[in-house]
Deep mutational scan, measured.
Amino acid sequence: KLLSSIEQACDICRLKKLKCSKEKPKCAKCLKNNWECRYSPKTKRSPLTRAHLTEVESRLERLE
């Protein structure tokens, strides 16, 4: 599967780190437990900047 097509777990399953069936409108866990089942939009991760990478590398060197 391509990364862009990976389905996201519902908010509660993601928060509780449960295996989500990803069914809509309610996944199996939410249906069974009568929880409100919501699927928040995916958040875009910002790409690493060179400055951040350099900072992490220098912190790693100090720890070694």
Rank of each mutant, 00 (worst) to 15 (best):
K1P: 15
K1G: 15
L2E: 14
L2Y: 15
L3R: 08
L3E: 14
L3Q: 07
L3K: 01
S4D: 12
S4C: 12
S4T: 10
I6P: 10
I6N: 09
E7H: 04
E7W: 11
E7P: 09
E7Y: 04
E7F: 11
Q8P: 10
Q8R: 07
Q8H: 10
A9D: 01
A9L: 00
A9Q: 06
C10A: 04
C10P: 00
D11C: 01
D11Y: 04
D11F: 01
D11R: 00
I12G: 13
I12N: 08
C13V: 05
C13E: 05
R14P: 05
R14L: 05
R14E: 00
L15Q: 08
L15W: 14
K16M: 00
K17I: 04
L18G: 15
L18K: 02
L18E: 02
K19I: 04
K19L: 05
C20M: 06
C20E: 04
C20P: 01
C20V: 01
S21P: 08
K22I: 00
E23F: 07
E23N: 14
K24F: 15
K24P: 08
K24Q: 13
K24Y: 15
P25I: 07
P25W: 02
P25A: 06
P25F: 03
K26M: 14
K26F: 15
A28Q: 14
A28K: 12
A28L: 10
K29L: 08
K29V: 06
K29R: 07
K29P: 04
C30Q: 00
L31R: 15
K32L: 10
K32M: 13
K32H: 12
N34D: 13
W35V: 14
E36V: 14
C37K: 03
C37D: 07
R38C: 13
R38A: 13
R38G: 13
R38P: 06
Y39S: 04
Y39K: 01
Y39I: 06
S40P: 00
P41A: 11
P41D: 08
T43R: 11
T43V: 09
K44W: 10
R45T: 04
S46E: 01
S46P: 11
S46T: 10
P47G: 07
P47A: 08
P47R: 10
P47H: 04
L48W: 06
T49D: 01
A51P: 00
A51I: 12
H52D: 03
H52L: 04
H52I: 02
L53M: 14
T54C: 09
T54L: 07
E55Y: 15
E55N: 12
E55W: 15
V56S: 02
V56M: 08
E57V: 05
E57A: 01
E57W: 04
S58H: 15
R59S: 08
R59E: 03
R59I: 01
R59Y: 03
R59C: 06
R62P: 08
R62Y: 07
R62Q: 14
R62W: 08
L63E: 01
L63R: 08
E64W: 08
